[in-house]
């Protein structure tokens, strides 16, 4: 089985978000980058398929050379080779188109992406890759098993879950549950050394239109100062929630 894991390179979850160039660009000064958490769950599941079912695992990112440390980290965790499509990803459609172009000369049985990136929050790249390449697609995927050519999956739905089954080739949008937090791997010295020898292939981007553009960024309005209510005056709290906030 050949697996491709889509890796989005995102600001660490604790990052303060600021913008530059009159609020038209993300200000990356002082920001640490990580593998998008949903992709890390997917990559870890891919490692399981590699170890237990002898799958091969490639990773791909559409990004500038700044994403290479993140890709090296995926190699240190255990991916076999990395591909970087050399371009600044502007929108999800663009990313999906670039990966689709790559798939014309590289085929995979399973493509694992994240349910959503924590920077763009598009929740769109995996579904678009699936539709562009006529592959099956399951998102919000919290369990994935593969036997022969058949995948059994669990998808989180609003208020419950659904068990699904379909044939490969398949694209998933993964999230926590695919593996547990405690299964995530920190690269060890051996992995880091090996990663230096593994291929990190850079592919030029192809020309492709943008469907959407982010033209200006804002910070959310600050909340008003919290109103503290003494714990022995909960009647006042109920009054405020009812008459002021109008939520009761």
């Amino acid at each position: 089985m050949k697996i491709l894991v889509c890796i989005s390179h995102v600001p660490d979850t604790t990052s303060r978000i600021n913008f530059s160039n009159q609020d038209t660009a993300f200000d990356s000064s002082g920001v640490q980058y990580v593998i998008n958490p949903n992709d890390e769950f997917g990559l870890t599941r891919a490692m399981w398929f590699k170890e237990k079912q002898s799958a091969s695992v490639d990773v791909i990112n559409v990004g500038t050379s700044l994403t290479e440390p993140t890709l090296r980290k995926t190699l240190a965790i255990g991916a076999d080779q990395a591909f970087r499509i050399d371009s600044d990803p502007k929108d999800g459609f663009f990313v999906a188109k670039q990966i689709t172009e790559f798939l014309k000369s590289n085929s995979y049985d399973l493509i694992i992406a994240g349910r959503e990136s924590i920077d763009y929050n598009g929740a769109m790249v995996p579904g678009m890759i699936a539709s562009m390449n006529n592959m099956n697609f399951v998102t919000n995927c919290v369990k994935l098993d593969i036997n022969e050519n058949i995948a059994t999956l669990e998808r989180e739905i609003d208020g419950g879950k659904e068990i699904l089954s379909c044939s490969l080739p398949l694209v998933i949008g993964g999230q926590k549950g695919l593996v547990e937090e405690s299964d995530l791997r920190i690269p060890n010295m051996r992995g880091i050394m090996q990663a230096r020898q593994k291929p990190l292939n850079v592919i030029p981007a192809f020309d492709c239109e943008l469907k959407t553009k982010s033209v200006k960024y804002y910070k959310p309005a600050e909340r008003n100062e919290v109103k503290l209510i003494p714990s022995d005056n909960l009647d006042q709290l109920i009054d405020l929630l009812h008459n002021e906030a109008k939520v009761l």
Partner: peptide, 20 residues
């Protein structure tokens, strides 16, 4: 066509356009 959307996990908003 320009709308406001949340991004950066609710830490920011953007004015974004759809060109198609």
């Amino acid at each position: 066509f320009t709308v406001k959307r949340t991004c950066y996990s609710n830490k920011a908003l953007s004015d974004s356009t759809i060109e198609s």
